[in-house]
Write a protein that binds this DNA or RNA. Structure first.
Lengths: 250, 250
DNA sequence: CGCTACGTTGAGAACAATCAACCCCGGTGG
DNA sequence: CCACCGGGGTTGATTGTTCTCAACGTAGCG
């Protein structure tokens, strides 16, 4: 949910085993200004560097599962991550898609309240929770920044509740595309056409729809001239103003 | 969303004009241990007392509207508040019901991202935002506590996304009753029968349903022997285990 | 070159929404 | 005192959006 304006061209930084930690040079972090680590003094940054490691995931790799002991916080460096909750019978609700600059893993309890999995090849920074907490105690500015980020997450979650509870399939898809586009622009990338790296099924689980309905609605928007579907999972928003209206329920 | 275990018998503390501020004695606050003000040193409490005032609302009175400048934070002292977002055509999504001990009004931007209105006669503490922010700067412990509260709100919001996106009407109503019951117990009140102070319409807007569907689903649960509807807006959970199963999708 | 996963499209079913009537209760004013 | 009114709640009939089940196409990959 954070802002980001650095071009990351590829996904892979250094080929390491899945989940294996790697010493990361925070000084060279390209997304630092949008993360918890923004605006740190050099000595603070050094302390962060001392506890952080890097994790690399392949498409589909799990990062952690709901109920697991919450031992780490993460910051997405490149790629994309999906976070979701499950019902006993397998029904799934995505609670978010995370892109470079976004953080995840914050847990009030001792365990994660949701699962996280890589949508594409992804690299993350990993902070041991205990150590980070101790750092936050000593640097209230960092905690203040974290509060701002969590508050923003909460506002985004409330917007999503409005979508899930009250918008039609059409409005949901329009809102979704616009959200992806805005976040892409915030990361300094092209907002149109927008890259849609997740599957129809994932999109459905994010919007409270089935794959079929997602597919049909894309088709419908395409035939209505609002969008075109480009190869490589890109969507061109041919009539953005119209999409904005649809998303707002007009 | 906060925890609370003090019995508040009535709603009215002191009859004052709607929305009018009143000097409040924080030292005597019965819900302090669940709020931002929990575990403060006496001198910190004195500083809070110096900036806080009290607000009293009648049933249906607005507290603030989405888009309005966010000048205050609030803490519910007694009563109940609903917070919601609207679409252009009037469709409404409740994002939460707040009870004694809960706070509201946190805004990342300069304006409120949602509207708030009293469900019943309600009393709140009011903190000027700027002054509270200055206090938070000086007392990182308070900010730490606030972070914990917001994180909890976020976890609740994610649970609600699962409900809105993936649960059936039946499962939604069962989940809703159990949530009210749990929060009632946390406030030290009777969890069964549970008091349901809000209208069918409000419940529908919270669960992403219409009034009619809410009403029908209550009837259905009643006929199935899971609940009984008592006078005074109370609901007896005759078979709580069954409700738990329904809520989990079993 | 065939798998498999993903996406699209179609037909029919189902759940919840809509439209509508009615009830009950509390408040108000004749 | 009672008739009227209005809001909230319940129930019924019907509609409709989305889901389900199913078939088929396509692209990437071993």
């Amino acid at each position: 949910m954070a802002i980001f304006d650095v071009k990351t061209t590829g996904q892979v930084r250094e080929p390491i085993a899945r989940g294996a930690p790697l010493r990361a040079p925070c000084g060279a972090c390209t997304v630092r200004h949008l993360t918890l680590c923004a605006a740190l003094e050099p000595h603070e940054l050094a302390e962060i560097s001392a506890i952080v490691s890097s994790v690399e995931l392949a498409r589909g790799d799990p990062l952690f599962d709901e109920g697991e002991p919450a031992q780490h916080l993460f910051n997405v460096t490149s790629g994309a991550v999906k976070v979701y909750k499950l019902l006993a019978d397998g029904r799934r609700q995505m609670t978010g898609f995370l892109f470079p600059g976004d953080f995840l893993g914050l847990a009030n309890e001792e365990t994660y309240a949701y699962s996280a999995e890589a949508v594409t090849h992804t690299v993350l920074c990993r902070f041991p929770r205990r150590k980070l907490e101790r750092l936050l105690e000593r640097y209230p500015k960092m905690e203040h920044r974290l509060l701002g980020m969590v508050s923003h997450e909460l506002a985004v979650a409330q917007e999503q509740m409005l979508l899930l509870g009250r918008k039609t399939a059409r409005e949901k898809i329009a809102s979704f595309l616009l959200m992806l586009s805005r976040r892409s622009v915030q990361r300094g990338q092209n907002g149109n056409p927008v890259v849609v790296p997740m599957s129809r099924n994932d999109i459905g689980d994010y919007l409270g729809l089935t794959t079929e309905t997602v597919s049909r609605t894309f088709t419908q928007l395409k035939q209505g001239g609002s969008i075109s579907l480009l190869p490589g999972g890109k969507v061109e928003m041919a009539d953005r103003a119209r999409l904005e209206d649809i998303a707002e329920g007009l």
